[in-house]
Design a protein around this nucleic acid. Structure first.
Lengths: 365, 365
DNA sequence: TCCCGAAGTTCGATTTAAATG
DNA sequence: GCATTTAAATCGAACTTCGGG
């Protein structure tokens, strides 16, 4: 059956113009059209006039290459996968924004998946992304989701990957993380400079590497400044971690600290959500922030600036971190395509103290 | 060149197993394997034993169909597109969550794009999704992004679409929206029931249909209850709308209301972000919420529950709305595939009053 | 005619190898 | 050999058609 006839029959909804149409319209072969439109190596032998003719016709016809055909043949998807552990977590969205921003300039597009803190979902989405032949993967994962089995799959399939927000010391793998120790240190230094000497500490869940690093920072400053840490004023969030639980944890642990009846004037919270909980608990007891207590958080999630009072915190430059992740991934993909080896890059980003209104100099006694 | 040889040469990274491999391993033809694995109509003639053999071998070989080949041939992508106007807006993320949740059960996967409130981005992403042959589109858009030109493209390409969060009265199009009038009415009724008679109103940007609808609700309740609305106590957010500007708008407009020196005891804010701004402004003037002023918002974004004080607000059931959108879209896609006509469905969702701690009964004078 | 299976065509592009003047 | 162009093979699966018991 002649081609034109069939095409005519289809009509209506399926009127996609193919490379075939461009070839016929321009009078050149499919091959030539393909070479010109992709600016392939052979294109340098083709006269400018021919190129322009073809390009113009492609444009007027509204030709758009079929991505499926292209990827099938070329074995390239021009796609990277992005998995986050919880899209409703404001921490995720700003990193996502950074990723999107810097991917936008590249020729890659992203396919996004939200694991919803659920391991089964994570695995299913990973499989889905692999089915879609992503050329690389960015993962924003917490420890619940990530383990060696999963990473082994990627290794075997030779898919470059970078982790944002956590590191895996057990494995050589590209990662972008915040300098937790420096951040927690800066937070404590800020409180100390304001005159606070009796400080309550709400540490993160033991399970998280972040918690350990941040505590290191606290101890290092305490040591340097000769500040003694009262073990009775140190409490820990539980290991069941999600954004809401951090708020509730902050709330309950602050009540706990209050109950211990040791005088203190400031709280060093694991993160912003914890700090919000702490402020709530203080407010509940008619204690005012920052007049009675100073509170400092970590992260600078979106609500921090809008809170009452606006929260002093340690800012993670999330957009930057996302952008860095993309940079590393793109390098890794390029290396992989040129069959070069690529040594994992670990980048540790400096956080920034953001003084707002939840901390205040201690009144001189 | 014999097939096995080539395949052997490739080795290493590219060892994907194809339907060809399954056919060879099982001793059946490619056709039979395809029929069995897809449970195609013809499969009913194939003996169970054959089916099981083929399935088992596919499994042990770890066969995964190549999505590009499949989509190329079948002309189906099993994909729907989702465009949101701003992923850092908490309103978006919870609707996204609802979408994801109910898409997860279906055979569709989603490709997500964040327009970042930028029109050019919106158009580029739309084009990208169309290139990927999405079978349907869910859009979470504000009025900046959406106009008739864009929708005409979808119409022409015959791609079903549903809008979440806004309606386009000019066009017959499926949409899921909140009942703004009922919500605003309920908010005012709540304040009224608590005894408030002198209330400041911060209305939304005039440009937004939401603003108009909510104001209708306010007026309808005021009329029914015989409450007089003082024009001097009504102020409007500017048309340049983004989440932060709503906060700042709420802040500044509350100061403005205070400056007018008419006694009032409550603020009816356009949305939660505006309410947060209002609470901040009151705090700045040493006025306390809810003791001196009651404040009510709209939306129930994530920070609302954690705010100090927790915000009384009108909750939009965002996950439900996302799920509804998916339901409608899937119906539309099915109809489109069976060449049935599908009349646009408009669903208006009832909001819910959430009483927390930012509102309080007026003390008897 | 019913059942079972296979050969061959097709989707829309990229790429290799080769033909033309 | 050089510049210019193209026929034909290929990617991996789905589908149409056909043949034999």
């Amino acid at each position: 059956m002649p081609f034109e006839f069939v095409r005519g029959l289809i009509g209506g909804s399926n009127l996609m113009v193919t490379i075939h149409d461009v070839a016929k319209s321009s009078g050149f072969s499919i091959t030539t059209v393909s070479i010109v439109l992709n600016d392939a190596p052979l294109a340098r032998y083709i006269p400018l006039e021919t190129k322009n003719r073809i390009k113009k016709i492609a444009k007027t016809l509204g030709y758009r290459p079929n991505v499926f055909a292209r990827s099938l043949r070329s074995k390239r998807s021009n796609t990277v996968g992005v998995i986050v552990f919880d899209i409703t977590d404001p921490y995720c969205t700003h990193i996502l924004r950074g990723i999107e921003l810097s991917l936008y300039q590249s020729s890659y597009i992203s396919i996004f998946a939200d694991a919803q803190n659920d391991r089964a979902r994570f695995e299913r989405y990973l499989e889905m992304l692999l089915d879609r032949r992503v050329e690389g993967l960015i993962t924003l994962a917490n420890s619940l989701l990530l383990d060696l089995d999963i990473l082994a799959v990627l290794e075997k399939r030779n898919v470059p990957m970078v982790l944002i927000g956590r590191e895996l010391k057990s494995l050589a793998m590209s990662a972008v993380i915040i300098d937790n120790a420096a951040g927690a240190r800066a937070a404590l230094e800020h409180l100390y400079t304001l005159g606070h000497r009796h400080i309550g500490f709400i540490r993160g869940p033991k399970m998280l590497a972040d918690s350990r690093e941040r505590w290191k920072g606290v101890r290092s400053f305490a040591h340097d400044a000769g500040l003694v840490l009262d073990p009775k004023m140190i409490v820990d969030l539980t290991d069941l971690y999600d954004p809401t639980s951090a708020f509730e944890g902050g709330y309950k642990l602050t009540q706990e600290l209050l109950r211990r009846e040791r005088p203190f004037t400031a709280i060093h919270a694991f993160d912003d959500m914890t700090a919000f909980g702490a402020i709530r608990a203080l407010g509940k007891s008619k204690l005012k922030v920052p007049d009675d207590y100073s509170v400092i958080g970590f992260d600078d999630v979106a609500p921090a600036a809008l809170y009452a009072p606006p929260l002093t915190t340690i800012r993670q430059p999330m957009e930057t971190m996302g952008a860095m992740g993309v940079g590393i991934l793109l390098d890794a993909i390029t290396a992989s395509r040129e069959s070069r080896t690529f040594s994992p890059v670990q980048r540790k980003v400096a956080p920034e103290l953001l003084v707002r209104e939840s901390t205040k100099a201690l009144a001189q006694p």
